[in-house]
Computed example of a mutant assay.
Amino acid sequence: MEKNKLALLEMESLPREVFVRQQYMPAQHFFPAHTHNWHQLLYATSGVLTVDVVNERLFISPEKAVWLPKGCEHSVSTAFGAELKSLYINANYQQLDTTKSSVLEITTLVKSLVIEASHFETNYSKTGYEQQVIALILSSLPRLKQDKTHLPWPTSSALYHLCTQLYNHPEARHSTAVLAKEINVSKRTLERRFLKETGMSLQAWSLRLRFLKAIELLNTNQNITRIALELGYSSPSPFIYMFRAQSGFSPRQYLAACKKQNPFTKSN
């Protein structure tokens, strides 16, 4: 069965209007940049996925999904491993934006429907129960709320590499002046160019990076003290303050809400 599912990636069209593909991505796994001839809704039932699209890095935790319209180039990776599900949808589907990707807040209903559809045969019946489930999935997708906490990525080579360095070392605390010196520009020039390319100040970008990294680490069941230290905080208190300011929840409240919304997550 898995071979048949994998072969779908090489097909020019889908055998049915919707097909669900599921698999486990081990830690440090990476799918290089590619496109599909159909739309894709991708989410993880456990773990966190990092999805790179044009000028954006998207963190997909279990309460979120990413919508990738036909032809949208994307790469997918996971730092700590993830159980993922891909909902492939015929390109004729027009109820979500078909011009750009977006992050959606996935609901328990949609998760349950996708899990149910994942047990269907590749050539499931176009009438009866299977088609009713598929129709309900498609009619539910436009009702999902959009999430705006993506991480914009600059386009110029110097700023791209600077952001890559910050992404790989979220614990580092460098002033804007020090970072500007690393790429041989003035502090003011760095601030102006960064805002122009990302729509955010460097300080706001760095804060969002640490917040999104925190979500990734929280989904590994590491304790809060260890996560705080990994992100460069001297103690849990300033880390908790940052997380609450960004999300409206404490880290523990966030995890409790995730478990409530994702009853299929396995406890360790």
Results as ranks from 00 to 15, higher is better:
253 Q>W: 07
223 N>H: 09
176 T>L: 11
233 Y>A: 06
250 S>K: 12
22 Q>K: 07
217 L>D: 05
211 F>R: 00
189 T>K: 06
258 C>Q: 11
141 L>S: 08
37 N>A: 06
232 G>A: 08
34 H>G: 04
262 N>V: 08
246 Q>C: 12
257 A>H: 10
39 H>A: 02
216 E>I: 01
52 D>Y: 04
161 H>T: 13
228 A>K: 01
96 L>Q: 00
82 A>G: 02
143 R>N: 14
140 S>M: 07
10 E>W: 02
17 E>L: 03
96 L>K: 00
4 N>A: 10
198 T>V: 06
127 T>M: 05
80 F>E: 12
244 R>G: 03
172 A>D: 10
210 R>A: 00
116 E>I: 10
154 P>M: 06
173 R>M: 07
119 H>W: 12
78 T>C: 06
52 D>V: 07
236 P>W: 12
49 L>V: 08
115 I>K: 12
248 G>S: 10
37 N>K: 03
230 E>T: 03
80 F>W: 14
40 Q>T: 14
257 A>Y: 09
162 L>K: 04
161 H>K: 13
205 W>E: 03
232 G>C: 07
108 T>D: 13
23 Q>C: 06
130 E>S: 03
230 E>I: 01
206 S>V: 03
56 E>F: 13
134 I>D: 03
149 T>S: 10
117 A>W: 07
149 T>I: 03
3 K>W: 14
81 G>F: 01
87 L>T: 15
157 S>A: 10
248 G>D: 14
1 M>L: 09
62 P>V: 11
242 M>T: 15
244 R>K: 15
108 T>Q: 14
157 S>D: 09
186 S>N: 04
120 F>P: 01
184 N>W: 12
95 Q>Y: 10
95 Q>E: 15
203 Q>F: 09
7 A>G: 02
59 F>S: 11
54 V>E: 15
104 L>R: 01
181 K>R: 13
98 T>Q: 12
4 N>M: 06
120 F>Y: 13
184 N>V: 08
188 R>M: 13
98 T>H: 08
71 G>Q: 01
248 G>T: 12
51 V>T: 04
164 T>I: 11
122 T>R: 06
47 G>Q: 02
85 K>N: 07
56 E>N: 08
122 T>I: 15
116 E>C: 06
194 F>E: 14
120 F>V: 03
188 R>E: 15
16 R>P: 01
209 L>R: 00
69 P>G: 03
136 L>H: 09
251 P>S: 15
191 E>T: 14
191 E>N: 14
90 N>Y: 11
94 Q>K: 11
236 P>T: 15
191 E>D: 14
203 Q>N: 11
24 Y>S: 07
152 P>W: 09
122 T>P: 05
107 T>K: 02
13 S>H: 11
152 P>T: 09
34 H>F: 06
205 W>S: 02
191 E>W: 05
177 A>V: 13
160 Y>K: 08
1 M>T: 08
170 P>F: 11
53 V>G: 02
80 F>A: 13
3 K>P: 08
215 I>L: 04
156 S>H: 05
